[in-house]
Design a protein around this nucleic acid. Structure first.
Lengths: 138, 138
DNA sequence: CAATTATATCGCAATATACGATATAATTAA
DNA sequence: TTAATTATATCGTATATTGCGATATAATTG
């Protein structure tokens, strides 16, 4: 099996199992929530870098997400000029819908497979994730 | 292993192996290219439905993507009022970057694993993709 | 103490997005 | 054959999103 074929399988899995109903969240809002979810101690400057925008733009985006209840600000004890951002419950729920598989669908699929097949899938995912982190984690 | 844990593995795989450099494509443009890539014979009306916008808005979006060289229009022989959309080479390359894993990264990871582990990963992906299609393909 | 850093706010401008109205052409129904 | 419906395209208009320079405040560093 080629790398392309494996990639296509990955893509098809997402296509079949993704959430189909999603809140109307702006493009940059999704990207910000994703960054906060995937990383630790995300400061406003990190958001600016991740989006490729100026710090003032990042600050504005962050302000709006706070107003809408998706994130909270915490002052960083190590440097009180800095704030880091945390997802609220609402933010977490929303970013999951834009990022992850629909767990209801995933459950349906897994429950319709034999235990042996389930274990193969789990093992495959575990192996790939672990090695990917080993090769590319920053 | 729970469904949530499996989902998190899936998400982490994407996070580690995604493309990091991407063209500046608008949000709706990405969604349109993705729809065209994943489905067959995509008409303008399908784009309107997929985006949740009116047909005139969809037509405008499509026009812009054609002008930028990402897609082409083909008149549908079965009903000449209809046109269906196809990705150009440029469109395909671009939508892959917004959707798929970076194949260079995926290759690095796979090549650093044993043949046995590679086969487990491939088997897992194949099983999940096949069952997902079986359960949810429209 | 002065300079630098991190974030926040404000005013302004460009781009993205959406829709109603209208038009043209193809298809279907009467 | 004609009228009605369907699929898409175009135009004018309006709102939302996005981005930045200038400025300000406060914390940290030299």
């Amino acid at each position: 099996m080629s790398i392309q074929q494996l990639n296509e399988l990955y893509m098809n899995i997402y296509h079949q199992l993704r959430f189909t109903y999603q809140d109307k969240l702006t493009h940059q809002a999704v990207r910000i929530l994703q960054t906060i979810r995937m990383e630790e101690k995300v400061h406003v400057s990190r958001i600016a870098a991740a989006l490729g925008v100026s710090h003032n733009t990042a600050s504005e985006h962050v302000k709006r997400l706070i107003q809408k209840g998706y994130i909270l600000k915490q002052r960083d004890a190590a440097d009180e000029r800095k704030v880091y951002l945390q997802l609220t419950e609402r933010g977490t729920t929303t970013v999951k819908q834009h990022t992850e598989l629909d767990e209801g669908k995933l459950a349906v699929v897994m429950q319709s497979l034999s235990l042996e097949d389930q274990e193969t899938i789990q093992a495959g995912f575990r192996l790939l994730e672990k090695q990917a982190r080993k090769c590319f984690s920053s």
